[in-house]
Design a protein around this nucleic acid. Structure first.
Length: 737
DNA sequence: CCATCCACGTTTTTT
DNA sequence: ACGTGGATGG
């Protein structure tokens, strides 16, 4: 009995076919990750392939982490030398080694969307581009899609000669790349583009990596763009052992440049490709799967494929329509609460999925009121917060003095009396001499136009120089603490005394924790390493099944995940499918929305609820929406409609004050509900030695109560379940007389 | 040079 | 409804 016996026939075919190009068309829930991990094991154990020669590429760090974990479990020896990583981090790793061949420094900085925007704004000003006519975002989007297609600024310029407004963009693109290089920075797209460029410019480097990665596997292949395709095909060109896994029905990133042609045309590029179809679904019930199949069938452009399952028929899908979005949210939150009370599942078994991030707000509000732990994925990125960006800018400045953006961000934070005028003069001086902004600052006393302002600059320069000299013997976390102390950043916030400032301090504490965690997890922690990790995290990466919380996220973020209970909220024409795609000329856009719907439905394992509202506030305006066309594509007999929603409102809750106030009141990390505070103030109604009752574990005796930061941690010796530690506010323990 | 106020646009999705 | 960023006045 080998580990491969547990695979079905098609899965085995995919695992055993190790040589040459392979295309695995894997439907939702068909066990593709299992196939990939088993394939890696098979390569090593049966084919004698050196783990060192294997590479697996995913899109998110979370997916990479999960695969790594599973590979570690299944491969006995040498699994740590397999490269399991995302496109972006693979490229960074390669570039850190060789990018000097392209005239960049190997300690380059990675710009996020915020940085890009700041830089573009600057460029527009310089090029005299009116940002009211050409918005930075639009220009950046154009540049990004050019990069996705590997179109250089020069090529772009030639292509758009005839179009006036595009000529402007071409100009901006050129300037933008020039600035990036000057700042020794790369944006997200550059990470891939520059790697391809490197491969093309330096055959020896390409061959080095080709020999290194003789077996390459790519997950979520339907979401690769042209640049990523080129990256992969160049790498695989020598040994041709390329195995790609994907599902064209789950291609949902066209807006980000994903080229569905990569998967649809794989057999054209590799005529000798072995094609394997995984069509047995192990995740969902018949009903859920049937609904998904029926919906996706309305798309014209797709590979033939139909999912089936041996699972039970299961419950029917539920559909509910409400008067407004409040009732919708209340119903869903109430339903989850009820199901958990009735032991149908734990909080972690539930997920609410929606089309736009803005829809999350109401759910948050209701979860806070109902005191249910939840986790919001997405929204405002932790690393996009002001205080975090400020401190990171300090670290970046120390790490790479050529990053003008970072230097300019912090030169007057905290206030050093250096204003726009001074900045402009330094900038001019730097531009004249072709030096970096920071280098110009270092010789501030030699800039005649500065006058007295030069004396204000000096302490800043000295400070940075001191930090840099400490770089050798201070760890990143010590450096960060040094910065916080010397700038008085936290002190200043503390002096403010507002709740908002408190929240910022908490965020800073969290940043420190993250640096320390980074140092613990890496053998050779470096400042550059930390900054790089920070630049490449996605929201979804922080989702951890260990926390018992309801998950809230967009449909896009949910790809690749599964939950016993799924709620698809906001099933309305105009929301989902979005207004943009309904009104678009291009009919394929609606197909992409439908694929998104397919992704949503197939996340559910046993229970799927679809909801919509008749009216909904959007940007302060009330909208009236029809039921989503996708709902109508689901056969009626698969759906249970339910009586009109009559359940009592979540009891005795004072009417919601404004959302802002709510947030203020509960401003802990989002998932820590209010009750902590309440409980602490009022104390517990049981103590050590008392007998208590728990919903799930039954009766037990309290052996200890410790005071945690925000809650009491109670240790109980249960008659049946043994000793458990739990937080008082979640455990809902009742004293038994 | 800095703080405050108002107008505007933003939202479809993100590595 | 909300936050950002520009304009304005101190």
């Amino acid at each position: 009995m080998s580990i491969y016996d547990t695979l079905n026939h098609e899965q085995q075919t995919a695992v055993f076919h190790t040589e040459g190009p392979v295309l695995i068309l894997a439907g939702a829930g068909s066990g593709k990750t299992r196939v990939l991990t088993h394939r890696i094991a098979y390569l090593i154990e049966e084919k004698g392939v050196n783990p060192w020669n294997i590479m697996a590429i995913t899109f998110t760090n979370k997916a990479a982490g999960e695969m790594r974990e599973r590979v570690d479990k299944i491969v006995g020896f040498g699994s740590e030398s397999i490269w399991v990583s995302t496109f972006h981090s693979s490229c960074v790793r390669m570039l850190r080694r060789f990018i000097d061949r392209l005239g960049y420094d190997t300690n380059f900085t990675i710009y996020d969307t915020d940085d890009q925007k700041t830089l573009m704004k600057d460029i527009c000003k310089r090029l005299d581009i009116d940002t009211k006519v050409y918005k930075e975002r639009a220009i950046l989007a154009a540049i990004s899609s050019a990069k996705d297609e590997l179109i250089s600024p020069e090529e772009y310029e030639i292509n758009v000669m005839s179009d006036f407004s595009k000529r402007k963009i071409a100009l901006a693109y050129k300037e933008y790349q020039k600035e990036l290089k000057k700042n020794n920075a790369l944006d997200f797209d550059d990470l891939i583009v520059k790697t391809v460029e490197l491969f093309r410019a330096c055959p020896d480097v390409l061959e080095y990596f080709q020999d290194r990665f003789q077996y390459i596997m790519v997950d979520e292949y339907q979401d690769t763009n042209t640049a990523q395709f080129k990256f992969v095909s160049l790498l695989a060109d020598k040994y041709r052992n390329l195995c790609v896994v994907g599902d064209d029905d789950q291609s949902i990133y066209k807006f980000r440049g994903a080229n569905i042609g990569n998967i649809l045309g794989f057999e054209k590029v590799f005529p000798d490709a072995k094609v394997v179809r995984l069509e047995q679904n192990y995740r969902s019930t018949q009903n859920i799967l049937n609904a998904a199949n029926q919906v996706i069938q309305n798309n014209m452009e797709r590979k033939r494929k139909s999912l089936w399952t041996e699972n039970a028929e299961g419950e029917k899908l539920h559909f509910r329509q409400f008067m407004n979005a409040h009732e919708e949210a209340e119903y869903i939150v109430g339903d989850i609460s009820k199901k958990v009370r009735e032991h149908d599942g734990e909080y972690r078994d539930f997920a609410i999925l929606y089309r736009t991030n803005a829809q999350s707000r109401l759910f948050e509000e209701k979860f806070l009121m109902a005191n249910i732990p939840y986790k919001l994925v997405g929204g405002v990125n932790f690393y996009a917060r002001k205080e975090i960006k400020d401190l990171l800018a300090y670290l970046k400045t120390v790490d790479n003095a050529r990053d003008d953006l970072a230097v300019r961000r912090i030169i007057n934070v905290p206030k050093r009396g250096i204003g726009a005028t001074t900045l402009g003069r330094v900038q001019d001086y730097a531009a004249e001499r072709g030096m970096s902004f920071y280098d110009a600052l270092r010789e501030a006393d030699q800039i005649p136009s500065l006058g007295r302002a030069a004396s204000k600059v000096e302490p800043f320069v000295t400070f940075i120089q001191t930090l840099r000299s400490k770089l050798e013997y201070l760890s990143p976390s010590e450096l960060l603490k040094d910065i916080i102390e010397n700038t008085g950043y936290v002190e200043e916030l503390r002096a403010e005394g507002t709740e908002e400032a408190e929240a910022r301090i908490e965020n800073i504490d969290e940043l420190i924790t993250k640096v320390v965690t980074y140092e613990e997890e890496n053998e050779e922690p470096t400042l550059s390493g930390f900054l790089e990790e920070v630049a490449l995290v996605a929201d979804i990466d922080s989702v951890d099944g260990d926390d018992n919380q309801v998950l809230l996220m967009t449909l896009h973020s949910a790809k690749g995940l599964e939950f016993p209970y799924v709620y698809l909220a906001g099933m309305e024409d105009g929301i989902f499918p979005s207004y943009m795609t309904i009104t678009a000329d291009d009919p394929t856009e609606i197909e992409e929305e439908r694929r998104l719907c397919y992704v949503g439905i197939t996340r559910a394992m046993k229970d799927l609820t679809l909801t919509c509202a008749q009216q909904r506030m959007i940007r302060g305006e009330t909208q009236y929406n029809k039921v989503s066309r996708f709902i109508k594509e689901i056969p009626r007999d698969l759906v249970e409609l339910g009586r009109n929603f009559e359940e009592k409102k979540l009891k005795e809750i004072p009417l919601p004050t404004s959302y802002r106030q709510m947030k203020e009141a509960f401003k802990q990390p989002a998932f820590v509900p209010k009750q902590f505070e309440v409980k602490k103030a009022s104390g517990l109604d049981y103590g050590v030695g008392d007998t208590v009752k728990h919903m799930k574990f039954g009766v037990g005796v309290v052996t200890a109560i410790t005071e945690g930061g925000r809650d009491y941690e109670v240790t109980v010796n249960f008659d049946k379940a043994g000793i458990k530690k739990m937080f008082a506010s979640f455990a809902k323990l009742k004293k038994v007389q």
